[in-house]
Design a binder for these strands. Structure first.
Length: 419
RNA sequence: GUGGGUGUAGCUCAGUGGUAGAGCACUGGAUUGUGGCUCCGGGUGUCGCGGGUUCAAUUCCCGUCACUCACCCCA
């Protein structure tokens, strides 16, 4: 066929959707237990929002955004992530004036025009949280602990939690100088990308996967040694709290995020199980204390993370699929199809999930259908049943059948289902 | 953007220089109104597309497109 879903964008069919629901419900339940409330943002935002927040020289902004001009007027972009919109909405609605601390969560599609691979799509789903107004470090630890607990609750056990601090602006400036001082003699040995990174954003050289670059990066001075006293105290506070909580973590001084807005705390959860492929970053986040102010909001510290739902889904163990139908109605003759349809409505009004094959067909084929879709109960209605005001109630699992008055059918079905 | 792999039935895949198969799925029957198991029967394909070689190409060659995996980067 010639018309297909756009490259890197997938349909999620009903057979897969229950796993998505399981994941999304687990996330909602988890974060709501910590006081987070849901927000929904537009999928389209002004392009400048992402350029300013994510950073002009990041890969996302340089080459991965879906950007177009709206009818020759404004440049719009399909959101590549959720934090920028969160900050925009927080500032736009002066949320700081209503409450000292704001805890939001979101779930939705994001768009990045990357080459698709296992666990990486051009439309992908993220769930994330943001906390505005709490400078930490206790909230940092609580957020990390929350996400670790969440991932465990999905049955994903084989993960590693990495934390780092890149300090505030002051730390970053002094570290940048030190790092450049270290890297400059190696400049010619670095890959072309890293040579460019040295000018644009030297911290990213630490994250390079080219063997020679990572060798050089391994010898680089640690940013942790350049933290100001305040930044150091914050990072120590985070680690102490994680220890009290018993949250497993590992400090990784080379952890650098690909978005420019972070400060101080950074963290990432790596999945280590089979089946994830090379895209093993399940979740990433950190603190972005300067961002609200940079969007003309009040000076407001903030921390958040986002996780990739497709990747979580790949790491989640399979669960038994549950039936989506309680009762399947079988019309024994074409003449009672109208009555069968009415019975369906009666049962649904009583709160049951009811299916039937309104096309008719043989009794055998209708029962086969009931079995196929895993209905627990079949209710058979024929001419004699209609005449007597009864239905044949067949328990497909226990292979028993009884005749019950039609008025009792719903109640009897419910009691069977609750066993 | 760079490299590798794969394109055959709705799905998973086998196969052949003489235009094609299995399992699953779907469907009818064995049981005039009773499912799952078993048995018997049924339908379905531009063999991704274009070109070349050949008497003949789904098969060999070239190109192209799609999908996929890895690199890069990220969730």
């Amino acid at each position: 066929m010639s018309l297909r879903a756009v490259k890197g964008m997938k349909d999620i069919l009903p057979d897969e959707i229950s796993k998505w629901h399981r994941l999304e419900n687990a996330f909602r339940t988890r974060v709501e237990g910590y006081g987070f409330r849901e927000v929904r943002f537009p999928i389209l935002e002004p392009t400048a929002l992402f350029v300013r927040s994510i950073g002009e020289t990041t890969d996302i902004v340089e080459k991965e955004m879906y950007t177009f001009t709206d009818r020759g007027e404004k440049s719009l972009t399909l959101r590549p992530e959720g934090t920028a919109s969160s900050v925009r909405a927080y500032v736009q609605h002066s949320v700081q004036a209503r409450e000292p601390v704001t805890k939001w969560y979101y779930i939705g599609p994001m768009y990045r025009r990357e080459r698709p691979a296992k666990g990486r799509f051009r439309q992908f789903y993220q769930a994330g949280i943001e906390v505005f107004g709490d400078p930490g470090p206790y909230v940092d630890a609580e957020v990390i602990d929350m996400v670790v607990g969440f991932i465990a609750s999905l049955g994903i056990s084989d993960v590693e939690v990495l934390v780092n601090s890149i300090g505030g602006p002051e730390t970053r400036e002094s570290y940048r100088d030190a790092l450049l001082g270290y890297l400059t003699p190696y400049r010619a040995e670095l890959c072309p990308d890293c040579q460019r990174r040295m000018d644009a954003n030297p911290l990213r050289v630490l994250d390079c996967k080219v063997p020679r670059c990572s060798e050089i990066a391994a010898g680089a001075p640690s940013i942790l040694k350049h933290l100001t006293d305040e930044d150091r105290a914050h990072f120590d506070g985070l680690q102490e709290t994680l220890t009290i909580l018993g949250t497993p973590y590992r400090v990784d001084g080379s952890l650098v995020r690909g978005l420019d807005y972070y400060s101080r705390t950074l963290f990432e959860v790596l999945g280590k199980g089979e089946g994830l492929g090379a895209q093993n970053a399940l979740l990433g986040g950190g603190r972005y204390d300067q961002m609200v102010r940079s969007f003309d909001g009040p000076d407001t510290p903030a921390i958040g993370f986002a996780m990739g739902l497709e990747r979580l889904l790949m790491a989640m163990p399979e669960a038994d699929t549950e039936s989506h139908v309680d009762v399947f109605i079988v019309a024994a003759q074409a003449s009672v199809r109208g009555q069968a349809t009415l019975l369906g409505r009666e049962l649904r009004d009583a709160g049951l999930r009811v299916e039937s094959d309104l096309r008719g067909g043989s009794l055998k084929s209708q029962l086969r259908r009931a079995d196929k879709i895993d209905a627990r109960i079949a209710m058979i209605l024929g001419e004699s049943e209609v005449e007597e005001g009864v239905v044949q109630l067949k328990d497909l699992k226990n292979k028993t059948q009884e005749q019950v008055p039609r008025t009792d059918a719903a109640a009897r079905a419910k009691s069977l289902l609750s066993d």
